[in-house]
Design a protein around this nucleic acid. Structure first.
Lengths: 207, 207
DNA sequence: CAGATTATTGACCGGACGGTCAAAGTCAGG
DNA sequence: CCTGACTTTGACCGTCCGGTCAATAATCTG
């Protein structure tokens, strides 16, 4: 690929890069970084291995590009948490949004899980420089809500962890969920009222 | 290794097999099956690669032996759920036991997470033939408790999923948890009262 | 201690994989 | 249609890795 310092990508470049990233998401999310090969990505993208390496200089660059893209969309629902909104509704809406993301973007969830599970070799810095400040800000909002008595007092960090764990579980452990539920179940449809009820019970202040 | 159809393992065999399995647990839990090499296991076990393959016929056999061992201990707390005990206490005790397992055996948790995340290529059968019946039995107990009004009615399958998700999260996403909390936190010590409160709120029936 | 069995390892093999390269194919503008 | 830049790929290279083997060391047994 020619040097592209200033110009935008051409139509073909855009199309092929997108195809590669889409294919790589599927492949990486299933097998992790080391468990996936450029050949698999190339086949899933419908092109030859050298052509994949014509648009990305290495397997690593594909993976990192994917993670960067992912992170932005992954944290969007949390960013939307509005300090001016109704506390309980804001939180229940956040839970709902995260559950929808697990349902609609399971590959993204599993890619992220793989990365963290292996010690976040690529994301470690970003977790402390980008994620922690964001969480700290949201924790402050939660603390404020709790101080005002709008929601029941509980550990705000672990409240956020619980939301992540309970929603992403359905994407990350999909195989297990399906095996245990057996056929004829829609895990996400069942999880929505379950989680809604759980957080409503937990966060509503006693009369 | 000589054919050992009937006899028990000798002292040396027992010691070396244990050392290999211990080392393999650490290595596999960090990198998954494909992300780990026999050389890494050999080095962690303090012996040469051919010697590792003298005690186990292949990398795959090490992995499967590890999974088999793991599964038994992993499901033990759930098996202990006693239909004759006090429902709320039984469940809170199960949550506490699972949280202790995540704290004391994080490698086991992550090995299991890797396996499920990659679609459970080795465990798929066991999940439906062994795990599902166990869960079905425990779900029946939960349903009975709910019918008797001993705990609040909710979806029993998803109640179990939630316990798994909320406890294993601290082991599987340890890197993220530490990055977000920053130094000076003991995630497990904080999680215990949080989860105790959560499930107490959720399961206690209104007066 | 002798002899047989068990334990250990350096050297090696074959295949898979990340990445390179040169040659061939394709496309846009004049 | 021609030219030059962009795109595509078959063939190849070096490395890593799972696994084998023969030769050596350690251990057990009579």
């Amino acid at each position: 690929m020619p040097d592209q310092a200033e110009t935008r990508f051409t139509r073909i470049q855009q199309k092929n890069r997108d195809a590669i990233l889409m294919a790589a998401l599927t492949v990486f999310s299933a097998g992790g970084f080391k468990g996936s090969t450029i050949d698999q990505i190339a086949e899933a993208a419908g092109m030859s291995k050298p052509n994949v390496l014509y648009y990305f200089t290495s397997k690593d660059e594909i993976y990192q590009t994917l993670l960067q893209q992912l992170l932005a969309t992954w944290l969007a629902p949390l960013r939307r948490l509005d300090p001016a909104g109704d506390p309980l509704n804001e939180l229940l809406e956040y839970v709902r949004a995260k559950l929808c993301m697990a349902r609609d973007f399971p590959h993204e969830s599993r890619l992220f899980a793989h990365e963290i599970l292996e010690g976040a070799p690529q994301l470690r810095d970003i977790l402390t420089t980008k994620l922690k400040p964001l969480i700290d800000a949201k924790v402050a909002i939660l603390n404020d809500w709790m101080n005002r008595g709008a929601i029941r007092r509980t550990d705000p960090h672990h409240l956020i962890f619980s939301i992540w764990a309970l929603t992403q579980h359905y994407a990350d452990f999909e195989t297990q969920v399906h095996a245990v539920l057996g056929p004829g179940h829609d895990p996400y449809a069942e999880a929505e009222p379950f989680l809604n009820n759980l957080y409503r019970r937990m966060l509503t202040v006693d009369p």
